[in-house]
Amino acid sequence: MARYTGPTTKKARAFGEAIYGPDRSFDKKKYGPGMHGNSKRRRQKSDYALQLMEKQKAKYTYGVLEKQFRNLFETAVSKGGVTGEVLLQLLEARLDNVVYRLGLSPTRNGARQLVSHKHILVNGVLNNIPSTHLREGDIVSVRGKSKNLLVIQESTARKAEVRNFPWLEWNPERAEGRYIENPVREQIPERINEQLIVELYSK
């Protein structure tokens, strides 16, 4: 199975965070899944377990496969700089994530579908590869005949602050956004402890 297609609330509860976005069911049960709910005494997790969970959280948050994630980590190491921050920058630069950040879809899964179903252009050229990494200055836009899709119209009609990210620029008249630059760690809102991931892969 290439992507996780199971219950998103259950997975969010396993990580203790609504990684798939606002979730009323998660808000009602913010403890781990299981037949005993939050009444079961849970053992303190080892360092390895914490590191593994953080890696899994990042993978599920961005919708990346194990091999892809490992390759991204190795790329981050080769680029120099702070490895954990570079890793998150690589994840943020994925086309499906940028489509989500621009507000063209309320979820990353929905953004990935828009890309794979050929509704998105990069620099005016049709691109249906969600894992495409954008570079500074790249333009992401909605294909002409796709602008009338209900999901895109509803998403773009949301308040402007939804897509208020300093490294992106959105033009509502042209229904296109520009990837200005790689974000710094403080600008990325995801609650991921990237240092734990670095420690896991460094063993």
Rank of each mutant, 00 (worst) to 15 (best):
V151I: 14
K118T: 06
I188F: 12
L50G: 01
R13L: 02
A160K: 13
A49M: 09
D27R: 14
V77S: 07
L91G: 09
H117L: 00
T8W: 04
G16E: 05
V140L: 06
R191W: 07
L87H: 11
V122T: 02
F69Y: 12
L52R: 07
I139V: 15
R112L: 02
D23W: 08
S155T: 10
G103N: 05
S141E: 08
N38H: 14
R43L: 14
R112C: 00
F165W: 14
S25Q: 13
L88T: 11
K159Y: 02
L168P: 11
T61N: 05
T75E: 15
S202Q: 14
I197H: 07
R43S: 14
P7V: 03
L196M: 13
S46R: 10
A111H: 04
Q44V: 15
A58H: 06
W170Q: 07
I120G: 03
A111L: 03
K79P: 10
S39D: 14
S131G: 06
M53T: 07
L91I: 06
F26W: 09
N71W: 01
E74W: 01
Q89Y: 08
Q51P: 03
E199C: 06
Q187H: 14
V98L: 03
G177N: 08
Y20C: 05
G81R: 12
E181S: 14
A175S: 13
K40N: 06
F26H: 09
A49R: 13
V98Y: 02
P22F: 04
R135H: 14
G32D: 07
S155M: 10
R163C: 07
V125P: 00
P183W: 01
V86S: 11
P7I: 01
Q153G: 00
G177Y: 05
A12F: 06
Y31K: 03
G110H: 04
K30T: 14
K79Y: 08
Y100R: 06
P183D: 02
A93D: 04
R13K: 03
G144V: 02
A49V: 09
E190A: 13
T9Y: 09
I197F: 07
R191S: 15
M1H: 06
E92D: 13
S46L: 10
L200F: 15
Y60W: 09
E66L: 08
H133P: 06
R163E: 05
G63R: 02
